[in-house]
Amino acid sequence: MNRISLLLAATAVLTIASPSALAAQPGSALLDTYHAAAMKEEPGFRDFSARRGEQFFHAKHGDTSCASCHTDNPKAGGKHAKTGKAIEPLAPVANAKRLSDAAKVEKWFKRNCNDVLQRACTAREKGDFVAWLVSVK
Protein backbone atom coordinates (compact mmCIF):
# COMPACT_ATOMS: atom_id res chain seq x y z
CA MET A 1 0.00 0.00 0.00
CA ASN A 2 2.80 2.34 0.98
CA ARG A 3 4.73 1.51 -2.15
CA ILE A 4 1.68 2.22 -4.32
CA SER A 5 1.00 5.60 -2.78
CA LEU A 6 4.71 6.44 -3.14
CA LEU A 7 4.52 5.50 -6.79
CA LEU A 8 1.38 7.57 -7.23
CA ALA A 9 3.01 10.55 -5.56
CA ALA A 10 6.08 10.19 -7.75
CA THR A 11 3.90 10.04 -10.87
CA ALA A 12 2.02 13.13 -9.75
CA VAL A 13 5.26 15.01 -9.15
CA LEU A 14 6.61 13.96 -12.52
CA THR A 15 3.41 15.01 -14.28
CA ILE A 16 3.43 18.43 -12.61
CA ALA A 17 7.17 18.96 -13.04
CA SER A 18 7.38 17.92 -16.67
CA PRO A 19 6.74 20.93 -18.92
CA SER A 20 6.73 18.78 -22.05
CA ALA A 21 3.84 16.69 -20.74
CA LEU A 22 1.87 19.87 -20.02
CA ALA A 23 2.72 21.40 -23.36
CA ALA A 24 1.60 18.25 -25.15
CA GLN A 25 -1.83 18.22 -23.55
CA PRO A 26 -3.03 21.58 -22.32
CA GLY A 27 -5.80 21.33 -19.80
CA SER A 28 -5.37 17.59 -19.13
CA ALA A 29 -4.79 18.07 -15.39
CA LEU A 30 -7.82 20.37 -15.26
CA LEU A 31 -9.96 17.81 -17.04
CA ASP A 32 -8.92 15.16 -14.51
CA THR A 33 -9.94 17.44 -11.64
CA TYR A 34 -13.29 18.32 -13.21
CA HIS A 35 -13.91 14.67 -14.10
CA ALA A 36 -13.52 13.61 -10.50
CA ALA A 37 -15.80 16.45 -9.36
CA ALA A 38 -18.44 15.63 -12.00
CA MET A 39 -18.52 11.99 -10.88
CA LYS A 40 -19.39 13.23 -7.40
CA GLU A 41 -21.99 15.74 -8.64
CA GLU A 42 -23.75 13.36 -11.04
CA PRO A 43 -23.84 9.66 -10.22
CA GLY A 44 -24.41 8.64 -13.87
CA PHE A 45 -21.70 10.89 -15.31
CA ARG A 46 -19.53 9.29 -18.02
CA ASP A 47 -17.41 11.81 -19.88
CA PHE A 48 -17.14 15.36 -21.12
CA SER A 49 -18.35 16.44 -24.51
CA ALA A 50 -16.61 19.09 -26.61
CA ARG A 51 -19.85 19.60 -28.56
CA ARG A 52 -21.77 20.39 -25.36
CA GLY A 53 -18.94 22.73 -24.36
CA GLU A 54 -19.29 24.64 -27.62
CA GLN A 55 -23.06 24.98 -27.17
CA PHE A 56 -22.52 26.19 -23.62
CA PHE A 57 -20.12 28.87 -24.85
CA HIS A 58 -22.62 30.24 -27.36
CA ALA A 59 -25.78 29.87 -25.24
CA LYS A 60 -27.54 33.16 -24.49
CA HIS A 61 -28.60 34.00 -20.94
CA GLY A 62 -30.73 37.07 -21.36
CA ASP A 63 -28.63 39.41 -23.44
CA THR A 64 -25.29 37.88 -22.63
CA SER A 65 -23.26 34.81 -23.41
CA CYS A 66 -19.60 33.93 -22.97
CA ALA A 67 -19.19 35.08 -26.58
CA SER A 68 -20.38 38.60 -25.69
CA CYS A 69 -16.85 39.40 -24.54
CA HIS A 70 -14.83 36.54 -26.06
CA THR A 71 -16.44 36.70 -29.55
CA ASP A 72 -17.81 33.62 -31.33
CA ASN A 73 -14.33 32.51 -32.35
CA PRO A 74 -12.20 31.08 -29.50
CA LYS A 75 -9.06 31.67 -31.58
CA ALA A 76 -9.77 35.40 -31.83
CA GLY A 77 -9.11 38.06 -29.24
CA GLY A 78 -12.14 39.62 -27.59
CA LYS A 79 -12.86 42.75 -25.65
CA HIS A 80 -14.56 43.50 -22.35
CA ALA A 81 -18.17 44.47 -23.10
CA LYS A 82 -18.09 47.39 -20.67
CA THR A 83 -14.51 48.71 -20.56
CA GLY A 84 -13.38 47.72 -24.06
CA LYS A 85 -10.16 46.25 -22.66
CA ALA A 86 -8.58 43.63 -24.95
CA ILE A 87 -8.99 39.95 -23.99
CA GLU A 88 -6.53 37.40 -25.35
CA PRO A 89 -7.82 34.35 -27.27
CA LEU A 90 -9.26 31.46 -25.24
CA ALA A 91 -8.11 28.47 -27.27
CA PRO A 92 -4.67 27.13 -26.25
CA VAL A 93 -3.86 26.68 -29.94
CA ALA A 94 -3.99 30.47 -30.32
CA ASN A 95 -2.75 31.40 -26.84
CA ALA A 96 -0.32 28.99 -25.15
CA LYS A 97 -0.87 30.54 -21.69
CA ARG A 98 -4.51 29.42 -21.57
CA LEU A 99 -5.42 26.56 -19.20
CA SER A 100 -1.84 26.48 -17.86
CA ASP A 101 -2.72 27.88 -14.42
CA ALA A 102 -5.50 26.00 -12.62
CA ALA A 103 -6.07 28.72 -10.00
CA LYS A 104 -6.49 31.32 -12.72
CA VAL A 105 -8.95 29.12 -14.61
CA GLU A 106 -11.01 28.64 -11.45
CA LYS A 107 -10.89 32.37 -10.66
CA TRP A 108 -12.36 33.26 -14.04
CA PHE A 109 -14.95 30.47 -14.02
CA LYS A 110 -16.20 31.79 -10.68
CA ARG A 111 -16.39 35.39 -11.90
CA ASN A 112 -17.73 34.78 -15.38
CA CYS A 113 -20.27 32.10 -14.43
CA ASN A 114 -21.65 34.52 -11.82
CA ASP A 115 -21.80 37.36 -14.32
CA VAL A 116 -23.26 35.42 -17.25
CA LEU A 117 -25.33 32.68 -15.55
CA GLN A 118 -25.90 34.30 -12.14
CA ARG A 119 -24.73 31.07 -10.54
CA ALA A 120 -21.66 28.87 -10.24
CA CYS A 121 -20.91 26.51 -13.11
CA THR A 122 -21.07 22.76 -12.55
CA ALA A 123 -18.01 20.56 -12.93
CA ARG A 124 -19.64 19.08 -16.04
CA GLU A 125 -20.05 22.51 -17.65
CA LYS A 126 -16.45 23.44 -16.87
CA GLY A 127 -15.12 20.13 -18.16
CA ASP A 128 -17.22 20.28 -21.35
CA PHE A 129 -15.95 23.77 -22.02
CA VAL A 130 -12.30 22.88 -21.42
CA ALA A 131 -12.72 19.77 -23.58
CA TRP A 132 -14.04 21.96 -26.39
CA LEU A 133 -11.25 24.56 -26.05
CA VAL A 134 -8.49 21.96 -26.28
CA SER A 135 -10.21 20.36 -29.28
CA VAL A 136 -10.10 23.61 -31.27
CA LYS A 137 -7.41 23.31 -33.92
Binding site: K82, K107, K110, R111, N114, D115
Partner: peptide, 11 residues
Protein backbone atom coordinates in the same frame (compact mmCIF):
# COMPACT_ATOMS: atom_id res chain seq x y z
CA UNK B 1 -17.97 40.18 -5.63
CA UNK B 2 -20.29 42.93 -6.90
CA UNK B 3 -17.85 45.35 -8.47
CA UNK B 4 -19.84 47.84 -10.59
CA UNK B 5 -22.06 45.02 -11.80
CA UNK B 6 -19.37 42.37 -12.22
CA UNK B 7 -17.85 39.65 -10.05
CA UNK B 8 -14.21 40.67 -9.56
CA UNK B 9 -13.55 38.58 -6.45
CA UNK B 10 -10.03 37.68 -5.37
CA UNK B 11 -8.62 35.15 -2.92
Amino acid sequence: DKHFGADASLT
